[in-house]
């Protein structure tokens, strides 16, 4: 019995030892370096491969760009021109002569140049001295220039139809509030006003130049710089009279919110920069036109401030002026649409 107990105890010890050895062998087998490496590779390839992230990033960027293209195609940048509200038209075409006289040059420099020689007086379709304007609806510099043009011409005649618009949303000084002379109507007993808007606000062709005006542009503005004005072949305006930046909430920031037509109009007469720029330019234009009309009408051309500016214009020399021969050379100093942008530090 005792022997039997001893045998059974010994066999139990042997069984436990065998089980322990088997367990150890199994552990060694599962924990072998080769096996561990396989597990590691599996983890690396299934859990941490960077390629899904790369593909995801590329897809995400692609989707964003495609979304931009779709938005771009859907957005309509074209704002149709609308007639200037009657109240605004009345205000801009009836600026107080006393205010204009008081402003004088408004502190702005003489914007004109003279063609060399003595080209014949430019006459318009009705045989009167011609005031020729060439611009584009997209152009912010033209947008700024139209304000004094409208005010000055209103002293010699009447705008029957005038439309409001803004310059291009995508050019420098985007959405500058202004008018367009496209489809406008003006009559005067003193001058003929010929206005050509070569392109719309999306820079698509709008109006073509009549033969006479095409020759003028070819002669004096061969690079197509706009705004361009020829005041009866006596004076040429080849660059903006003032910066379109002044027609914004922050003149130093070309991307700041543009002033509306009404806001601009309400600033005229305050004596501020907007008033000085627009009325000063209008007075220069008025004086230049007076030289074409034999200083008619009296009430306009005999105003002391106009007489003074006219005197300045009459003493202008041809230094750096325009001749058909040197036009190309001189044009290089005038900001074209792109050059003008450069000079504002934007190109």
């Amino acid at each position: 019995m005792a022997k039997s107990k001893q045998r059974s105890a010994a066999s139990a010890v042997q069984r436990r030892e065998q089980a322990r050895q088997q367990q150890q062998r199994q552990h060694i087998a599962t924990a072998s370096p080769q096996n561990r490496g396989t597990q590691k590779r599996r983890r690396a390839t299934t859990k941490r491969s960077p390629w899904p992230y790369v593909i995801g990033a590329i897809v995400l960027v692609g989707v964003i760009v495609i979304a931009f293209v779709v938005i771009s195609n859907q957005s309509t940048q074209n704002t149709p021109n609308t007639p200037v509200p009657a109240s605004l038209l009345k205000q801009v075409t009836n600026v107080d002569p006393g205010l204009l006289s008081q402003t004088g040059t408004g502190g702005i420099s003489n914007p004109f140049q003279k063609p060399s020689g003595s080209p014949p007086l430019l006459t318009g379709p009705n045989g009167k001295p011609e005031v020729f304007y060439y611009g584009g609806e997209f152009c912010p510099y033209c947008a700024a220039e139209r304000w004094p043009v409208v005010i000055a011409l209103s002293r010699f005649g009447t705008f029957h139809k005038l439309y409001e618009t803004t310059s291009s949303s995508t050019d420098v000084y985007p959405d500058t509030a202004t008018f367009t002379f496209y489809q406008s109507s003006y009559s005067s007993q003193y001058v003929d006003f010929v206005a050509i808007e070569g392109t719309d606000r999306n820079e698509q062709p709008l109006q073509s130049l009549p033969a006479q005006e095409a020759k003028i542009v070819q002669t004096y503005d061969s690079s197509g710089t706009i705004p361009f004005m020829d005041i009866g072949n006596k004076f040429l305006l080849t660059q903006p009279s003032y910066s379109p930046g002044d027609l914004r909430t922050n003149p130093k920031d070309s991307t700041s919110t543009p002033l509306t037509q009404q806001e601009i109009m309400s600033q005229i007469g305050t004596g501020g920069t907007v008033s000085q720029d627009i009325l000063g330019s209008a007075n220069y234009l008025t004086a230049a036109i007076c030289t074409l009309t034999n200083n008619q009408p009296d009430i306009v051309c005999n105003d002391p401030s106009i007489v003074q500016i006219e005197g300045t214009l009459n003493t202008m020399t041809y230094a750096g002026g325009f001749t058909p021969g040197n036009a190309a050379l001189a044009i290089a100093d005038i900001p074209t649409s792109a050059q003008a942008r450069s000079r504002t530090g934007l190109a």
Binding site: V172, N250, S254, S256, R341, G345, L346, A347
Partner: peptide, 13 residues
């Protein structure tokens, strides 16, 4: 040369 080509409120491209 667009309005977006500079740092806002500066002339720095």
């Amino acid at each position: 040369s667009s309005a977006y080509s500079v740092i806002p409120s500066t002339n720095v491209p």
